[in-house]
């Protein structure tokens, strides 16, 4: 084997791609030719070092922008993407949200032995992961950051009005979220879900638990808008017990209005 022929095997040699026959021929030549041996060693070391270079990791913004764009895409803003992506508004979303979705999707993917070049299996995901926005809303509502939960509420507002999972998450937020601002926004987001009986019961339950006057007022308004007449006992209780004069005033108005 000539030096020239030997060097043509180097690429396979470094990447462990040589077949047995070529491997033997190569080693024979390297044993005999010092020039080729030294070169194989030097370049081989460099090849190993290339593999040891730490991979640059993308920032959290990449993921959030991608999922933002995806959600926007879903809502029909397709023409935005005929432009290069860096011109679209770079909305932020903490990476955890997307990571949550990723876990979910990865779970689904793993369950089906998903491989990227098996497109029929990919298409099975259609049934498994039906609604991107639902996922985004649901995972956003679980976030540590109040700003992100507010964002989840915004997404929930755009969910299908019959999406019971999103409704459940919203009602849970109204009842349990630690932040007043998030609870307040969640109450406003309940309007599109008005027709569901779960909404009505949820509002009544939330009203008895609520201690922030702003949220109490928002809930009373919602009761009136949805004409929930069975709210009378809860309203009377507020009329008597609410610490804030504004809340008592609003409860009185609601009682008149619901008669």
């Amino acid at each position: 084997m000539t030096c020239e022929e030997t060097k043509q095997l180097f690429a396979d040699y470094w990447s462990d791609g040589l077949n047995g026959e070529d491997e033997i021929k190569l080693q024979e030549h390297l044993g005999a030719c010092e020039g080729c041996r030294k070169e194989a060693e030097r370049l081989g070391a460099l090849w190993r070092d290339l593999g040891a270079l730490p991979a640059e990791q993308p920032g959290p913004g990449l993921r959030s922008r991608f999922y933002d764009s995806l959600a926007a895409f879903r809502s029909g803003a397709d023409d935005r993407f005929s432009q290069p992506s860096h011109r679209s508004p770079a909305k932020q979303m903490v990476w955890q949200i997307a990571a949550g979705i990723a876990l979910l999707l990865a779970g689904v993917g793993a369950g089906y032995g998903l491989r990227p070049n098996q497109s029929p299996e990919l298409s099975q995901l259609r049934e498994e992961v039906a609604n991107m926005r639902q996922l985004v809303a649901l995972s956003l509502l679980q976030q540590q950051s109040a700003s992100e939960r507010l964002r989840g509420v915004s997404y929930a507002l755009r969910a299908e009005p019959n999406d019971s999972e999103v409704l459940g998450a919203l009602l849970d937020t109204v009842k349990r979220d630690s932040n007043v601002n998030v609870r307040l926004a969640a109450v406003d987001a309940l309007h599109p879900f008005a027709s569901s009986p779960a909404t009505r019961n949820g509002i009544l339950q939330a009203l008895t638990k609520q201690d922030a006057p702003l949220v109490q007022v928002a809930l009373i308004d919602l009761l009136v808008d949805l004409k929930i007449k069975q709210a009378e006992p809860e309203l009377r209780q507020l009329l008597q017990n609410a610490g804030d004069a504004g809340v008592r005033q609003r409860a009185e108005w609601a009682l008149e209005n619901l008669q």
């Binding site: 993308p58 990449l62 993921r63 991608f66 999922y67 995806l70 895409f73 879903r74 029909g76 397709d78 023409d79 993407f81 005929s82 979705i101 990723a102 999707l105 990865a106 689904v108 993917g109 998903l114 990227p116 990919l122 298409s123 995901l125 259609r126 049934e127 498994e128 992961v129 039906a130 609604n131 991107m132």
Partner: peptide
């Protein structure tokens, strides 16, 4: 551009997670 179904967007999310 043709409408893209939710399923296709979900696929895209999977591909994103695998390859980005």
């Amino acid at each position: 551009m043709a409408r893209v179904s939710a399923g296709e967007l979900s696929k895209l999310a999977v591909l994103f997670e695998r390859h980005h």
